[in-house]
């Protein structure tokens, strides 16, 4: 079995995010990191490999992004991927979810994996949809928000987090599966793994290399356009109850909750 894991370089969680008003895109300057949700996808791939229910020949980390995204691939490899593929091309800048999904699908077609894994969302765009778009282009079944994967008779038995509980779904391979962060606890990469990551094979591909139609990617090729960006409305100040007489304070809190029907 060959597993491809889609990963993304995102601004570090500790960096304050801001929108660039001129491009209407997220300002991606500052320190970056491997999208934390993707670390769970890599760990899921590793657990399938180490689980022994199926032979995994290789785990390939795939990303699309500028030059700096190589660092996200190194991190993915330090967590266990055997090699990585970096799709990078100025023509891809400004791609929306549809264009990104199409471009990634083109890379994956060349790799023809049995399983594609990815984090359910990116820490920056938070669209939750790339997996589904990729699956559509590859004509593969797609599952989202998966928090458990078992390999059984060449199929996958997955649990996905649904609104009111959990769905257990069996899916034929090949498939595209996006995982939630509850699926596992990613391992700590050792120093040896971090130092060794740069030595593992990394293929750099341009849009042309994987047969991407330039009219379907980039800002021009995107089917959505951001018209305006606005800051979120300021939060209304909360009500502060000073604790002078505790009985009275409790009564105030209880009636506040009752007014909002928050107490059963």
């Amino acid at each position: 079995m060959k597993i491809c894991v889609l990963v993304k370089e995102v601004p570090d969680a500790a960096v304050e995010k801001r929108m660039d008003p001129s491009t209407k895109r997220l300002d991606r300057s500052g320190e970056k990191n491997l999208n934390p949700f993707d670390t769970h996808a890599i760990e899921a791939a590793m657990q399938i490999k180490e689980g022994g229910a199926v032979d995994v020949d290789e785990i390939v980390a795939v990303t699309m992004g500028p030059e700096s995204a190589v660092r996200a691939l190194h991190k993915a490899v330090s967590l266990g991927a055997d090699r990585s593929v970096h799709l990078t091309d100025p023509a891809l800048a400004g791609s929306d979810v549809c264009a990104t999904g199409y471009a990634l699908a083109q890379v994956l077609k060349a790799e023809s994996p049995d399983l594609v894994l990815l984090g359910q969302q990116s820490d920056d765009g938070e669209c939750y949809t790339v997996g589904a778009v990729v699956a559509d282009h590859l004509q593969m079944p797609s599952l989202t928000q998966v928090i458990k994967i078992d390999v059984q008779d060449g199929k996958l038995r997955c649990e996905r987090q649904a609104e009111y509980g959990y769905d257990t779904v069996e899916v034929e391979l090949p498939a595209v599966i996006s995982v939630g962060d509850a699926i596992n606890e990613p391992r700590y990469p050792s120093l040896k793994a971090i130092m060794g990551a740069k030595k593992k094979p990394l293929d750099t591909k341009s849009a042309a290399d994987v047969g991407i139609d330039p009219s379907r990617v980039g800002e021009q090729g995107s089917r959505t356009a951001v018209l305006a960006i606005n800051p979120p409305p300021a939060k209304e100040p909360g009500e502060i109850i000073e604790d002078e007489d505790t009985d009275e304070t409790v009564q105030k809190i209880v009636s506040w909750l009752e007014e909002r029907k928050l107490l059963a």
Partner: peptide, 21 residues
Amino acid sequence: MAGQWTSASGRAPGEGAPRAP
């Protein structure tokens, strides 16, 4: 969130972020 590559939570934005070496 439990990514090992993630900066620890609970800090003010911009603080404790990985810095340029």
